[in-house]
Design a protein around this nucleic acid. Sequence first.
RNA 1: GGAGAGAUGUCCGAGAGGUCGAAGGAGACGGACUCGAAAUCCGUUGUAGUGCCUAGCAUUACCGAGGGUUCGAAUCCCUCUCUCUCCGCCA
Length: 424
Amino acid sequence: MIDTKELKSRYDEIKKNIADRYMNVDLDAIIAIQDERYKVLQETEALRAKRNETAAKMKGKLDADARAALIEEGKSIKTELAEKEARLSTLDQEFNEAARTIPNYASPDAPVGKEDKDSLAIKFVGEPPKFNFKAKDHVELGESLDLLDFDSGAKVSGQKFYYIKNKAVILQMALERYAMDIVVKHGFTPFITPDIAKEEILNGIGFNPRGEESNIYTIEGTGTCLVGTAEITLGGYYSNMIIPKEKLPIKMTGLSHCFRREAGGAGQYSKGLYRVHQFSKLEMFIYCTPEESEKFHKEILSIEEEIFSGLNIAYRIVDTATGDLGAPAYRKFDIEAWMPGRGENGEYGEVTSTSNCTDYQARSLNIRYKDDDGKTRFVHMLNGTAVALSRAMVAIMENYQREDGSIDIPKALIPYCGFDRIEK
RNA sequence: GGAGAGAUGUCCGAGAGGUCGAAGGAGACGGACUCGAAAUCCGUUGUAGUGCCUAGCAUUACCGAGGGUUCGAAUCCCUCUCUCUCCGCCA
């Protein structure tokens, strides 16, 4: 969350930010709760001081009457204090829940706008392939080459689950290694992370584990959830810790399964592997000082480009509009790869996303570092997709298809696959 | 899953209802001694919050987490989490 001490001093800025993001947050109501909370906090602390004072008077020897009087006084303070504390804890909870709904400050450089189409495509790389035949989509390719089995996925696990089969399995593993090698080359420490995380971590990262719109599967009765991304587990790794400054930046990359409910996510643009309940993803994560976060955000983006351009797939970079930013994000860049089977004649589809969340997550998760002046400050936290395997598979299968229905393996992946084509 | 032991400040470690924000030691920092260093000696050394007449002062909270008992809890009781040892099960 943002620094709630700034609700009044940065009032106009916060209001504008909420409006720019087309969110519905009642800042004045939150400030009213905060004022009330401070008032009750002060009253509570005054009572506690009185209780401590009364108790302190009883340390030495006292005659019976004086002692009895003090005990009576202590008892009455205790009753009064219990009421105040109950009120305070209600207010604390209300305030925290409300404050959490305030989004992070957006970068002044992020385009202002309501939705997807207001985002700016800031760079185009590569040429979409020109086929002299009607391009198939990956679902058709996958079924005819016996690589993907959505029917069995639906039967055994439900809609939007799938089996990957045969050489597609090797291709996915090759992609994993290919991306991992690039990321590790850039100094990221590799991790395989848990696929389950506690709700408090989810909340700290900015995911809402509950409610109708939640994209998260919760595991009933355990206080835990299936992770939607390794961002959650990598970001929770240093929760409640103070990191020595010389250890920054910390660069981690984590491979995990990702589980998403995707309620209501059906339709033509969610077809096949594009939007599924479970996929694997290699995620990059950086903890750094505030001064360096914009620099590292660019670095993550450039690694994402290196991975996709190395596969020789056309893509564009999108600078996400304020209305489409997740609440924790200060700025977000997406890479959209060309997908020949998407829409009528091919379209760009999102394959990676990188966000600079500044100190928004760090404040909720209490992740700090000790600065040169000895003060502890919140770190900045950034995340970015190295490769979302299911979507990268869509892009590869569709871009590398041949007229006879076979699929070439991108040159960079051949050494990892051990074959150069998938055919019947 | 069963039985037992444990969790205290940067680290080690004492503490067993009030004299405990917490002994002692280590470390770090400052100083003395020294040409300099080591050794020795002296001193300082947690975090977060709130208020105010805001380089400060006052006050609150924090001894794994959350509850409870009590006028008063690091200390007593309950629940939970984690760590260690042994047994069981298991990839």
